[in-house]
Design a protein around this nucleic acid. Structure first.
Lengths: 233, 233
DNA sequence: TTCACACGGATTACACATAATCAAGTCATC
DNA sequence: GATGACTTGATTATGTGTAATCCGTGTGAA
């Protein structure tokens, strides 16, 4: 096993600093992820400037930042669009997600503390009790996996996972998990906790993979059903 | 096996369009990758504006774009720096590279055409014959792997690989491969071709992994040796 | 050491000029 | 009359320049 490394570095912090007012591109990313700026929609600089109460310059900078992050597509002299989220894209990022998460969880097997496990159980209990409220569910789900993977040294991998996770959340907001899916999700979460407790690497990898593939399958089904609503361009 | 998908989509095209003049952020990325803007160095907007013969606005936009791509670090009211490339970072991206490349090569096993293999052999012959000229070596190496992975449907994965590859090239420019490393590299390239010919998935994955880890080890050694030169700040 | 202050540079706003794109309409040709 | 090429005008992106403000850092005095 490779020696542990300092984990202070993060390639893509979601928020630059805790107490600072969030920068414009963070606000816009939130609005994209939450679906307020729908996937595929046109982003005009003047409209955005008005909407967010700033001048055009910061808007242009935010758009470029988001373009670099992959949330926005820029084309020369034709402005910006929110990146369309299609089936193809979903498959792609879940393929990557499976790779990254099974990589991340292998580290958790060895490094998750007793406190981490307690926290995961606590969070999962709250998820179990939750009814409705997709927003809160997503927040708790992210928190659960945040504890699972948070100790990992590889900030790059975490950044990729988080970025893709945000896109997935944007979709999940539109297509909430069905009750059946919720039950499966919860069972898988408990299975992850159990695998970590037992230091069972094979089981952990298997469950994590299954968890991701399940989410993928569910999203794809919903995407196909409601294929009229989320118009891509 | 999952059905094939349309591969027309690319999350992060290096150049927006072929015939267009490259945008500023592309030029700046090239200069970062080539080492002209050294890792860790301060990027002042006014200096850059003068250097590239444009006003401050486009420079700021380019910086934001590069920040989103991970090549530049921005901090509020303190300007921009080229992202420092340290040992920790190199380890991280190679961990990811191993994941991505073994994923990509599995597809190549099934989908590489006879023409692809011919092309790979041709490129590798040119690499074998090449002496010195790190720039040309890097170009050919990228071309080799471009053919290997190019048919893959997962544009996201290709984008991640390419982005990381550019960073690695920035380092390789500073720390060229030793003759011994070159010999190993070439042997590994031929082994990849052979594995693809034989449709031997296990072998292909093994070689690709070994290839990446070898490059990582070599870079890390060089980084430690010349640890005075690449000053982070 | 600590505080006040000045300076450099980033950030924002605004006004303006240019250029590209798109849509609608005109015109010529078949 | 229908089709396709061209013109035109509105819209919007893109680039420049300037000014005002904010923030971080270093300097120097108490």
């Amino acid at each position: 096993m490779r020696p542990e490394r300092d984990a202070s570095f993060d390639a893509d912090p979601v928020s630059s600093r805790e107490s600072d007012p969030p920068s414009l591109h963070e606000v816009m990313r939130r609005d994209i992820v939450s679906g307020e700026l729908p996937a595929g929609s046109r982003l005009k600089t003047q409209e955005l400037a008005q909407r967010y109460g700033v001048s055009i310059n910061p808007v242009r900078e935010a758009l470029h930042q988001l373009s670099g992050e992959g949330f926005v597509l820029l084309s020369r002299n034709r402005g910006a669009r929110v990146r369309p989220l299609d089936e193809h894209f979903v498959r792609n990022i879940f393929d990557i997600r499976v790779l990254i998460e099974s990589y991340l969880v292998r580290f958790a097997i060895e490094h998750a503390t007793e406190a981490d496990l307690r926290q995961m159980r606590e969070i999962q209990r709250r998820i179990d009790d939750l009814v409705g409220d997709q927003v809160e569910l997503d927040r708790l789900d992210e928190e659960f996996h945040g504890v699972t993977y948070g100790r990992h040294f590889n900030g790059e991998a975490l950044a990729i996972r988080q970025r893709h996770g945000q896109v997935v959340h944007a979709l999940a907001m539109r297509y909430p998990a069905s009750p059946a899916r919720r039950v499966t999700q919860n069972a898988e979460h408990w299975a992850i906790v159990e695998a970590l407790e037992k230091h069972d690497e094979a089981a952990a990898v298997r469950v994590v993979e299954q968890h991701a593939r399940g989410a993928e399958r569910h999203l794809l089904e919903r995407l196909r059903q409601g294929s009229t609503t989320p118009k891509s361009f």
